[in-house]
């Protein structure tokens, strides 16, 4: 089944999505990434106030079978983390673009080269073969 890739988001090659909201950005993992990992059972998120450079690891996400590091697609300072996920990570699998969001950043202006939805869809397609 083709992964859900909303047209209005930007994507990193490490399978994070980025949504601009005012002068902040919200970051999560894509439907493709959650599907590859399977049921997520463990999550490590940064503290509010921590700063990350683009491409820097800001946490980790784990299923029973695999670990995956989380990389900041956009540099910036963490202004909020989705602390509801600490007790229950299931929203990441069920609703990766909504209730499964991970962190909110105030961008520093530096960012990785991000893909639009069409380019990210091609990138997922390439890896399926």
């Amino acid at each position: 089944m083709a992964p859900n890739i909303p047209a209005d988001l930007k994507y990193s090659k490490s399978d994070e999505w980025v949504r601009a909201e005012g002068d902040e950005v919200v970051i999560g993992i894509t439907d493709y990434a959650q599907d590859q990992l399977g049921d997520i059972v463990y999550l490590e998120l940064p503290q509010v106030g921590a700063s990350f450079a683009p491409g820097q690891s800001f946490g980790a996400i784990e299923s029973v079978k695999a670990s995956s590091e989380l990389y900041a697609p956009v540099g910036g300072e963490v202004v909020a983390v989705n602390s509801a996920l600490e007790a229950n990570q299931e929203p990441i699998n069920r609703d990766p673009y909504g209730a499964g969001w991970l962190v909110r950043l105030r961008p520093s202006g530096e960012q990785e080269e991000l893909l639009d939805a069409a380019a990210y869809a091609r990138y997922c397609e390439e890896r399926a073969h």
Binding site: G38, D39, V41, S63, V64, K65
Partner: peptide, 11 residues
Amino acid sequence: PVQYSGLIEEH
């Protein structure tokens, strides 16, 4: 096959 419905459900 690594999983069908989901690893935890199968487990």
